[in-house]
Amino acid sequence: MNLKTSCKVVVIKNPNVTKAEDLVGWRGNVDSSKQDVPFGKSPMCAKLIADGKIANLQDMPSYFAKEVSKLVNDKGISTLQAWEDGLKYAAGPEDFATKDTTVNFWETLFWGGHNEAYKWANKGYKVVLSNPDYLYFDFPNEVHPAERGYYWATRFNDTRKVFAFAPENIQQNAETSVDRDGNSFTAKAEQPVAKFHGISGQQWSETVRTDAQYEYMVYPRIFSVAERAWHKGGFELDYVQGREFSGDTDFVNKDLLQQEWNNFANLIGQRQLEKLEAHNVEYRLSVPGAIIADGVLEANVDLPGLPIQYSTDGKNWLSYDQANKPKVSGKIYLRTSSFDGTRFSRVTTIN
Rank of each mutant, 00 (worst) to 15 (best):
D248L: 09
L257D: 02
T312E: 14
L297W: 11
D250N: 15
A226C: 08
N324W: 07
A265T: 06
A290I: 00
P304W: 00
F264T: 10
G305K: 07
Q259I: 08
V240L: 05
Y239A: 03
D313Q: 04
L276D: 05
A290C: 03
I308A: 01
N300K: 13
E277T: 07
G233W: 02
N280R: 14
W230E: 13
T312M: 12
I222R: 03
Q270A: 12
E244K: 08
Q272F: 10
Q258I: 10
K232P: 00
R243K: 14
P288V: 08
N266D: 11
Y310R: 06
F235S: 05
E236P: 01
N280P: 00
N324C: 10
N324M: 12
E298A: 14
F245R: 01
A278F: 04
I308G: 02
Q241Y: 02
G247D: 02
I291F: 11
G233V: 03
F235E: 09
Y283C: 07
A299W: 05
V252D: 06
G247K: 01
G269M: 07
D302I: 15
V287A: 08
L285E: 04
N263R: 13
G305I: 01
G234T: 02
V225K: 01
L297E: 09
N266P: 00
E298V: 15
D248E: 15
G295L: 05
T249I: 06
R221S: 04
V240Q: 05
V301R: 00
A278P: 00
L267P: 00
E236Q: 10
A229M: 09
G305H: 04
D321K: 05
S246L: 07
D302E: 14
H279C: 13
G305E: 03
A265L: 04
Y310C: 08
S246T: 07
V225I: 12
N324A: 15
E244M: 10
